[in-house]
């Protein structure tokens, strides 16, 4: 970028980002700074009742199905009174509420401080902008993770007593994957919050992302599949051997549609759970038909372990993009 002073040139981020990468301490990370910001954020952003509320909330969404499963005993058609049954039930709830809570905790993290001017207090001290984003991420993640921990820890006693037994691996698995899932949405929330100085826009973005992931993204595969079946979209043809030994020609959406689908954080959450815990998310019949659809073996992005990569992707990438973007903006 030349140093001329034509109007509009300075505040245009595309123009400034064309400058050479900074060589000084811009964007450097200081562990001490991140810790100080995270601690400050934890103390400032959290009203004690909110933490208490979240802990009680997570406790209840574990205990309520536990009591229900215990009361119904083995009569329930879909789930058993075991930890695996509990995980299978609870994750349907957490898959919805963790994104909501993470987005609500995080949407104002940066935009709010920018709007009110308290970010100036933060950045008057020797923190880099990257320190601030990371510190905020750690602070908000800590709130979510700790309340998850308290809820899970206390509910464990109820589960153990009512079920008369306790599968530690499944229970801890649900907790750990839920924390990862929460980190992913916290990263998304902080990232969105750093894009604007208006909390109104930040709120709209957070809501938009929730709708995108929870409603739009998940239904995309179904929509594409429908269009393929109706021949509006080209698909991939394959044949299966029917019960009578006949060859049946079928069509499925292109691999890209499945890859896209697998990047939905909620889909990934479910897949990682079925990988980590003993909850078989897909019954063998489904697995078999999937294998047939892909000519014998399911591509790696549809294997459950790949979902861990997807969750890590959603933890790292939004924050990384935000860190890059945030270097260039005028506060």
């Amino acid at each position: 970028m030349s140093a001329d002073t034509t109007p509009g040139d300075g505040s245009d981020p595309t123009a400034t980002s064309a400058r050479a990468a900074p060589s000084g301490d811009i964007g450097t990370v200081s562990f001490q700074s991140v810790r100080a910001v995270a601690k400050k954020d934890f103390q400032d952003s959290i009203r004690s009742w909110l933490f208490l509320f979240l802990s009680v909330f997570f406790f209840s969404i574990l205990v309520f199905p536990t009591v229900l499963l215990w009361y119904l005993g083995g009569d329930a058609p879909t789930a058993e009174a075991t930890t695996a049954g509990l995980v299978g039930t609870v994750h349907e709830v957490t898959r919805l509420v963790i994104p909501v809570i993470a987005l609500v905790l995080g949407w104002k993290a940066i935009a709010g401080e920018r709007e009110t001017g308290s970010l100036k207090v933060l950045l008057s001290l020797p923190h880099s902008r990257t320190d601030v984003l990371l510190g905020k991420f750690v602070g908000r993640s800590a709130v979510l993770s700790l309340s998850l921990f308290v809820g899970f820890f206390l509910a464990a006693f109820v589960v153990a007593i009512l079920f008369g037994g306790f599968d530690l691996a499944d229970y801890v698995g649900l907790f750990a994957v839920s924390v990862l899932y929460g980190l992913a949405y916290t990263s998304i929330a902080i990232g969105l919050s750093s894009l604007t100085r208006s909390t109104t826009i930040a709120g709209a973005l957070a809501f938009g992302v929730f709708v995108l992931f929870y409603v739009v993204w998940e239904t995309m595969l179904v929509a594409v599949d429908t269009l393929v079946q109706l021949d509006y979209l080209p698909g991939v043809e394959y044949t299966v051997t029917g019960p009578g030994g006949d060859q049946i020609a079928l069509e499925r959406p292109h691999d890209i549609a499945f890859l896209f689908h697998s990047f939905d954080p909620g889909v990934a959450y479910r897949s990682v759970l079925s990988f980590v815990t003993s909850v078989a998310e897909q019954d063998p019949g489904v697995v078999q038909s999937m294998e047939e659809a892909f000519g014998g073996s399911v591509p790696l992005f549809l294997q459950d372990w790949f979902a861990i990569v997807v969750l890590l992707f959603w933890i790292v990438v939004p924050l990384a993009v935000a860190i890059y973007w945030f270097q260039w903006v005028d506060l």
Partner: peptide
């Protein structure tokens, strides 16, 4: 210190 390159040093 250059205000853009070494802001952390300055603010320290």
């Amino acid at each position: 210190f250059d205000a853009q390159e070494h802001s952390r040093e300055i603010r320290a």
